[in-house]
Computed example of a mutant assay.
Amino acid sequence: MPTGIAIRDARTQLFDAAERILLRDGPSALTSRAVTDEAGCAKGVLHRHFADFDAFLTELVQDRIARIEGQTEVLRASAGSGAVIDNVSGALVVIFESVAVAVIGLVIFRDEVRARLRRAGVGGIPVLSEASVMIGRYLEAERDLGRLASDADIATLAPTLIGAGHLLFADRSAQPPEPRAVTRVVTTVLAGALPK
């Protein structure tokens, strides 16, 4: 690779390259050489911005968690408009058609990344935990507006939706589920919480 050429926003370029590799080839294909080759930069660029490869991967996961946290307010702001089932179904598609499923595999695959995330205060299963919070806050807002039953158990519904969504999207080698399959799951999970 050529040296001496300035790279604009190298961190983002490296994160995006890692995401493409994760989505295409899975966590076992993720190496520093693969990332820098995919990003079109010298290997030294990665080590100039990160202490080591596990530090890079840890920050990649934290960056993807931050994206989900950013979507939380967007989804919550949609409360009161559209159909609850459609809003939740759309949110699940956005979460799981992104790199979320591959990031979960990465965290499971790399013990050191998991340990560093724990030390950084990331609990539960990274990405899934934040997605559950996102869905929970939205459902709470809908409950407050009377579009969900006042006794709806949000603490159970949100992780149930995330778990079911994860199972629908978990097979990286298959096509994503049909939108109606996602809607069917959301409808089933929320059936008892929707006002009669």
Rank of each mutant, 00 (worst) to 15 (best):
R48W: 08
A42I: 02
A42P: 05
E59R: 15
V45I: 11
G40R: 05
R67L: 15
G44F: 00
A42F: 01
H47F: 12
G40W: 03
R67F: 12
A42N: 13
A66Y: 07
K43T: 10
E59K: 13
A66T: 13
H49A: 10
F56Q: 00
H49M: 05
C41K: 00
A39W: 00
H47E: 06
A42D: 14
R48I: 08
D63I: 04
F50R: 00
A39C: 06
A66W: 06
C41W: 00
F53S: 06
L60P: 05
A66Q: 13
F50Y: 14
L60H: 10
R48N: 13
T58V: 10
H49C: 06
L57P: 00
D63T: 14
H47Y: 15
R48Q: 13
H47V: 02
I68D: 01
R67Q: 15
H47W: 07
D52W: 03
Q62M: 15
H47R: 07
V61D: 08
A55W: 02
L46P: 02
D52K: 06
I68C: 05
L46I: 03
K43H: 09
D63S: 13
D52T: 09
K43P: 08
V45N: 03
G40Y: 04
A39D: 01
R67V: 14
I65S: 06
I65Q: 07
A66G: 15
I68A: 04
K43N: 09
K43L: 09
G40N: 06
E59F: 02
L60M: 13
I68N: 03
Q62N: 12
V61N: 04
T58Q: 12
H49D: 12
C41M: 06
A42Q: 09
D63N: 14
E59S: 13
H47T: 07
L57R: 10
A55M: 10
A55K: 09
T58N: 05
I68Q: 07
I65D: 05
A42G: 11
T58A: 09
L46A: 04
A66D: 14
R48K: 14
A39M: 01
H49K: 09
E59V: 08
E59D: 15
Q62Y: 02
R67C: 11
L60V: 10
V45Y: 00
G44M: 07
D54I: 01
L46Y: 04
I65L: 11
Q62I: 15
D54G: 00
